[in-house]
């Protein structure tokens, strides 16, 4: 390709294509390197409280009085008005599906058979469109839709670790609430 002169710019295309198969089969020389690194991320005050409350089976947010806003995930400052946030406020563990995907990819882009149902849930009690990403369960992929009302399914208390995964997933909230 690189020696084919064509009309217009770019007039040629320098570079030498090698196939992924040739690399896999070691037909072309390369050097290999692997990195091993671990990280311990400190939580900071906002995340620490958020995760501690999740461990108790509760979702907590922060208010910004200036913006009349309830933030979840909670932050110690409001990025809209650039002021400190004001108070902790407990929210419900129900919400609305804002968007979603039905994923056949794992984190390394490997294909998976059972799709992952994932999306954004805006949480009841927070400001409109304010929520977080999570999984969905106890529903067929074709039932999942934007605007769907959902409720958190919590891990058993003894299995909770103070993580967003203390919520297993969100399930459909039946009409009139299921509690």
């Amino acid at each position: 390709m690189s020696d084919t002169k064509i009309e217009g710019q770019p007039g040629y295309a320098p570079g030498t294509h090698v196939s992924g198969r040739d690399i896999r089969d070691k037909k072309i020389p390369y050097t290999w390197w692997e990195v091993e690194a671990q990280y311990a991320y400190s939580l900071g005050p906002a995340n620490a409280r958020f995760l501690k409350e999740l461990k108790e089976g509760k979702i907590i947010g922060r208010t910004c009085k200036k913006c009349d806003r309830v933030l979840v995930p909670p932050r110690m400052f409001c990025e809209w008005c650039y002021s400190p946030t004001n108070e902790w406020v407990y929210l419900k563990d129900t919400g609305t599906v804002e968007t979603f995907s039905i994923s056949y990819l794992d984190p390394d882009a490997n294909r998976i058979e059972e799709p992952i149902l994932v999306g954004v849930v805006s949480i009841d009690g927070a400001s409109p469109k304010h929520g977080f990403m999570h999984y969905f369960g106890e529903m067929k992929p074709e039932e999942l839709h934007i605007g769907m009302r959902v409720k958190a399914v919590w891990k058993p208390e003894e299995e909770r670790t103070g993580s967003v995964r203390d919520i297993k997933y969100f399930k459909p909230l039946k009409d009139g609430g299921d509690e």
Partner: peptide, 17 residues
Amino acid sequence: PILDRPLTPNLVWLFAM
């Protein structure tokens, strides 16, 4: 790392959503 990574997300999810 705190809010998203425990869900083992793939970047394509973002665009899909």
